[in-house]
Computed example of a mutant assay.
Amino acid sequence: MKDILGMIVSGVCICHCLFTPILLNLMLIGTTADLLVFEYFHFMVLGLATILGIYSFSFSYKKHYSLVPSILGVAGLILLFTAIYQSSFWETLLTLVGGLLLILAHWKNKTLQYYFI
């Protein structure tokens, strides 16, 4: 369950990065737009992704003893944290790659658990 939740949170990062500019250009106003551009939203989602990653990867490592999910997860989180301080093009690119790495890390973690139950 924790890996599925991790994939969902990573997907939210990707969707937020891709669709916020489109929605803002369509003149979306109100509470939803305020939430989408709320500066601390990035830190809240990254904090949640970090907590889920630490919990999921450390707990699962004790079952399958593979560092691959952890390495992919750390690389994804580093890219996501780096993306916050970049211009719009690099922010988008780093968020997409980082989010995809996190999704891949959680997927790999989940599949490895099936082999070592």
Rank of each mutant, 00 (worst) to 15 (best):
L93S: 11
I71H: 06
L79N: 09
L101H: 07
A105K: 00
T92C: 12
T92N: 12
V74Y: 04
V97T: 10
G98E: 09
A75Q: 00
I71M: 11
T92D: 10
I71D: 04
G98N: 03
T92K: 13
S70T: 14
T92Y: 07
S87Q: 15
L79C: 11
L96A: 00
I71V: 15
I103R: 08
L102P: 10
S88P: 01
S88V: 14
I84V: 15
F89W: 13
Q86M: 14
L96Q: 01
S70I: 14
G99T: 03
L104V: 12
F81Q: 00
Q86V: 00
Q86D: 03
G99L: 10
S70W: 11
A105I: 07
S87N: 15
T95F: 06
G76C: 02
I78R: 04
T92E: 14
I84Y: 14
I71A: 13
E91L: 11
A105T: 08
L79K: 05
A83G: 04
L104P: 00
A105L: 08
W90E: 09
V97L: 12
E91S: 11
E91I: 00
G73L: 04
L80H: 02
A83W: 01
L104T: 14
Q86P: 01
S87Y: 10
L72F: 14
G98S: 05
L100R: 03
Q86Y: 10
G98I: 02
P69W: 10
L102I: 08
P69T: 13
Y85K: 10
S70C: 06
L102K: 11
G73V: 03
I78C: 11
G98A: 04
L72E: 07
G99S: 09
V68C: 02
V97N: 00
S88E: 15
L77I: 02
G99Y: 03
S70A: 13
L94Y: 13
G73C: 03
G99D: 05
P69C: 09
L94T: 06
Y85H: 13
I78E: 05
I78V: 15
L102C: 14
F81Y: 15
L77V: 05
E91P: 00
I84P: 01
L72W: 03
L80S: 02
G73A: 04
G99Q: 10
F89P: 12
S70P: 02
T95K: 03
L96M: 09
V74C: 10
L101I: 05
A75S: 13
L101Q: 06
Y85P: 01
I71C: 05
G76A: 02
L77E: 06
G98T: 05
P69Y: 03
S87R: 12
G98Q: 04
A105W: 02
L93D: 07
G73D: 09
L93C: 01
Q86R: 12
G98H: 08
L96Y: 02
S88D: 15
L80C: 02
L96C: 07
L94M: 12
L77D: 07
A75M: 10
G98R: 02
L93Y: 07
I78M: 12
L101C: 09
V68L: 13
V97Q: 01
I71L: 14
V68F: 01
L100A: 15
S70Q: 06
T82I: 12
I71W: 05
F81T: 08
V68K: 03
A75G: 03
L102A: 05
S87F: 10
L101K: 03
V97M: 09
I84L: 11
S87E: 15
V97H: 00
G76Q: 07
P69E: 10
F81L: 11
L77M: 12
